[in-house]
Amino acid sequence: MPSGSAQFRGRYINKLDAKKRVSIPAAFRAALAGQPLVLRRSNRLGCIEAWPASLFEASITPITPADVNLEEDDDSFYVNYADTVDATPDSEGRLIMDAKLLEHAGITDSIAFLGKNQIFELWEPSAADAMIEAARARAQARAMTRRQGA
């Protein structure tokens, strides 16, 4: 998927089966058009980010030997790549989920898929609901502040 060509929209909840597989929502599968994913821990939130592989790869800056000698760069590499998993949906559109990623997100039996423009996130369903409501409240507060300041 070239950058800018597809968006992930909507909220879907699917069950995690006994083999730790989950079906990607049909709308998201259509947007992926058969492309593999890169799954990673969110650096800010208690969820798993799902990046189309081409978008993730386009965001990578090549490193040099000097880069791995700087503590700040090392930290960035560990945070952004050590918990990253390549994931290719099977012929039925299912992903096999990584146990450590599921643990990070607190996911046990169902996964909420939240569209987020060119990526999507995987959440524990009640945590997803709480995040959406908190985001709405913050957006409303910002809108009120702008109106009052105008």
Rank of each mutant, 00 (worst) to 15 (best):
R44T: 12
L101W: 03
D86V: 12
A137L: 11
A137F: 04
R136A: 12
A82D: 08
A33R: 06
A33D: 15
F8A: 03
R146D: 07
R29I: 01
S54Y: 00
R147W: 03
I24E: 07
K20A: 12
P89A: 08
L95Y: 06
L101T: 03
R136D: 11
A130V: 04
A58I: 04
A58N: 09
H104Y: 06
K100E: 14
N43E: 13
A33H: 07
A139F: 06
P2W: 12
A127W: 03
S91W: 01
E71L: 12
P2E: 14
A50D: 13
A26N: 13
H104W: 10
Q148D: 08
Y81D: 04
D98Y: 01
R11H: 07
A50K: 04
P125T: 08
N43T: 13
D109N: 13
A127P: 06
W51S: 03
I111W: 02
V22N: 07
Y12I: 05
F56C: 09
I60Q: 14
T88N: 06
P36L: 03
S5H: 10
E49Q: 15
D73G: 04
T61A: 11
M131Y: 14
D98L: 05
F8R: 05
Q7I: 14
A30D: 15
I63G: 11
E71P: 09
L114A: 09
A66L: 10
R147P: 03
I13N: 00
E133W: 11
A150H: 00
L39H: 00
F28L: 08
I107A: 00
L55C: 05
I119A: 04
V85C: 05
T84R: 10
G4P: 02
Y12G: 13
L101S: 05
I107P: 00
E72H: 11
A6S: 14
